[in-house]
Write a protein that binds this DNA or RNA. Structure first.
Lengths: 205, 205
DNA sequence: AAACTATAATTACGTTACGTACCGTTTCAT
DNA sequence: ATGAAACGGTACGTAACGTAATTATAGTTT
């Protein structure tokens, strides 16, 4: 009695307008740039995009999901993952790049959105993954090269190591207790590498 | 011609009801506990507190400020800043405490609020200061003791060092890419102290 | 004791945005 | 040609906003 359920049934009826979808995302992005991600309303997007509200709700459940989708569409600039002979220089360069991107206007919006979204929606997860994993996985690769080159300890929990490097950036962005600039980036990397402890203490624990 | 301006002029007219203010804050806090900080509405608070809306607006400009005030009122448990002979043990204990507090329900709400508030209002700043500085300044004191005891380098930028320790916690809380528990706390402290670099690398930069 | 003044609770109001339902129209596959 | 689904547009009921007006109340001042 069972039937085959076509996983992607042939589309019947009028297909969705790519043009409308694109206009929606662009309008949403522009409005966020003007008024910030918190003030994005579906009505304003519909009006600017020349689109009916139902068309928007057909794609996204609420303004927040739309906002994240719009930010994801206009992707953050990815650092040029160029490798030099010195993995430690590469790391420093990459962290500086991350800092530069996220302390800019768009980067701040992205951080804000990421922090504000409490929902466990698909879009929300995708958003977090996209934002976090981009820089983080690049850092992982670099650290591994640095390990191979003998510049970084091999007995590390790599995830902890990555958190140690990228955590301070978002911490400052969100708490706002100090500036986030290139100097901070190099400070992080160098301090993390050297460690806080004295040499005499290194062997004890 | 100048006159003395009384910094706290004697209150005229009917004094503000402390009872009303307390009821408002408590109702706001309870409602946040039930529905999360994002869904707090002034109307619901007024209804539950048995208070008129204007009374609420007399104290706070909007729901977000009220939310932060309510969270601030019910202060987060402060760690017992007890000092032992080993500052490094103290540090580890304190970071574990911070992790425990902020990974709990109330701590998560606080983190959420902190991240979501973009306004530069007074309440917003006070909120950030309260949340951040509590643990941070305690950590600073401990680190300084550790320096005196010779367990921690003295050529550090203390703010960077503190970010290195506390940054990863909030990073994980907000990005949600890994668990935040006591084990993570000890990992952070120990890794930060030892550093990521190999000994051979320590002298080079 | 009487006048004064700011707060209190209540009610009403205009505004904004939400998310949904319905419309007639359009654009495809069959 | 027929039918299905998306389209733009409009209208709707709901929720919450933040403000104004009203009357009562609680302290201070004279």
């Amino acid at each position: 009695m069972s039937r085959h359920v076509d996983p992607s049934p042939k589309p019947r009826g009028r297909p969705r307008s790519t043009q409308a979808r694109t206009a929606i995302l662009k309008s949403a992005y522009d409005l966020m740039a003007e008024h910030g991600p918190g003030r994005l309303t579906v009505e304003a997007v519909a009006a600017r995009a020349g689109v009916g509200k139902p068309t928007i709700y057909r794609y996204w459940a609420n303004a927040q999901e739309l906002a994240m989708a719009a930010l994801l569409e206009q992707k953050l600039p990815q650092p040029s993952n160029r490798e030099t002979a010195s993995p430690l220089d590469d790391l420093e360069r990459q962290v500086i790049h991350v800092v530069t991107v996220f302390s800019g206007r768009r980067g701040r919006q992205v951080t804000q959105m990421m922090a504000a979204s409490e929902a466990d929606s698909e879009v929300s997860k995708a958003f977090r993954n996209q934002v976090i994993m981009g820089s983080r996985e690049q850092g992982r690769a670099i650290l591994q090269r640095a390990q191979t080159a003998g510049h970084v300890r091999t007995d590390l929990d790599m995830d902890v190591a990555l958190d140690l490097i990228y955590g301070p950036i978002f911490y400052r962005l969100l708490a706002g207790h100090a500036d986030v600039d290139a100097g901070f980036a190099t400070d992080i990397v160098r301090t993390a590498l050297k460690g806080l402890g004295t040499t005499g203490n290194r062997r004890t624990r």
